[in-house]
Amino acid sequence: MSAVRFEGVSKKYSSDSSSGGVFDISFDIPAGQFTSLVGASGSGKTTILRLMAGFLQPTEGKIYMDNQIVSDNTHSLPTNRRDLAMVFQSYALWPHMTVFENVAFGLRARKVHKPEIKKLVDEVLQLVNMEKYVERRPGELSGGQQQRIALARSLVLKPRLLLLDEPLSNLDAELRIQMREQLKELQLTTGITFVYVTHDQEEALAMSDYLLVLEKGKLLQSDHPEVVYFRPVDARVARFIGRAFPLNGTLVNVSKGGLGKIELENSNKNLQLLGSVPAHTGISLGSSVCLVLRSEMVRIVDSNTVDNTSECRISGVILSSSFIGRENQIEVKLETGDLLTVYDNSRRRFKAGESLLLAFDPEAAVIVPERAG
């Protein structure tokens, strides 16, 4: 069942498409799950969230919540009638109010009786582990504590839909990891549909049951994180989600088992490599395609070893090598001229200018079009 559905929705801020907005977007948000909208700045994430909230009205298309139309280009259901709550990047806590008063604010606006308010506030503060701070004011709390109060203020209303607009962006790296784990736990505990906006693809993968990948106001792919990661619809999605490096070429053959052979561009030796061709792509022979390699699937091999495996091999030259703790991060310029980052956890020292031979399992690589559709 869908909590939210967009059908051909556009929101144009002006006739110039470069001015932002979203264009002819259709998707479903699964009910009772954690969905993330992910994309670079200007991809349309916050616009979609504001359309869901009722802060914006679509230029074209229809928005449904629980199979009821809430917005189209002629009318829009007011925000306070959409049974949703929103957590902002800035938290927006009342500085003169205590923690209890901030969390109780929405309940008082709904004229809930005092005994029920205390019961509900106490319950939600325990849920976010902030029950000891009821008399403090926001200025006496850390950033992470303020974030939890902002969450509690939304959760206490028991909305069907909780919208979160990059709420962790002001926190340091360690606290962000702690908070994203708690957010996921809260979603599972409450069963509320979470819709989360982020530009951090690692964060989106770690937290989400479902992903929407956006670019310049267009929806590129919507699916479960594992599908988006391992079976991107095109090179744009592959580049954004995970450490991926598409190599351009032409599809010259596809076996019955679904392995495709591509002839790489910019190769003086007519180098051909293999990769898996997803059935949904519908790529035809002779098409321009990309072989998507991810850093974790590529390993460094000894050039003196005999190639008696089914692995594909490609050579390159090291541009730089950095020790980053548990592994070396190595920037390699491939023989095709493409750049690839590989990681090696051996204690070997790598030097700029050194030649490398890289290998990968073609079953793990994927061949996709540069652009889907």
Rank of each mutant, 00 (worst) to 15 (best):
K62T: 13
K269M: 12
G42Q: 01
E131A: 15
G21W: 02
V112L: 08
L214G: 00
L358Q: 12
I300D: 03
D28M: 01
A235S: 13
M179L: 08
P159T: 03
Q89A: 09
L339I: 13
Q329D: 14
Q272L: 06
G144F: 05
Y343Q: 12
S18K: 04
V368D: 11
I300P: 02
T189V: 10
I48H: 03
R50C: 05
L84T: 11
D338W: 09
D122Q: 08
V9H: 07
P167G: 13
E226C: 10
I314P: 01
L247E: 08
Y229K: 06
N248E: 15
L84P: 08
K114A: 15
Y91I: 03
V121H: 01
V9K: 02
R108S: 00
A150N: 11
N328C: 09
T74C: 11
L186E: 08
A31W: 09
S276N: 13
G54K: 10
T305D: 15
R148Y: 14
V103D: 00
F6L: 11
P159R: 00
G275I: 11
V298N: 04
S284M: 10
L205S: 06
A31I: 07
E174K: 15
R349S: 12
L125W: 10
N266L: 01
S320P: 03
D361K: 14
C290L: 01
S288P: 11
P30G: 07
T250L: 06
E174P: 00
R176H: 04
L205V: 08
S303C: 00
V70D: 03
V213K: 10
K216Y: 02
P58N: 00
L93N: 06
D302P: 00
G44F: 04
M130S: 02
D28F: 01
G242I: 03
L51E: 02
E60Q: 13
S355R: 15
A359Y: 11
I63D: 05
V156M: 01
K132C: 04
D83S: 10
P225H: 07
K111N: 12
D83P: 05
L186M: 14
V233R: 03
L120C: 03
M130R: 00
T193P: 09
L125V: 08
L163I: 11
F100M: 07
S19P: 00
M1Q: 14
P30M: 10
I69N: 04
I367K: 03
Q57E: 13
V277K: 05
Q201S: 07
L220T: 02
R239I: 06
V342L: 13
G8I: 08
M207G: 09
E185H: 15
R239C: 09
S267R: 01
F88D: 03
I63W: 05
L273D: 02
L274T: 11
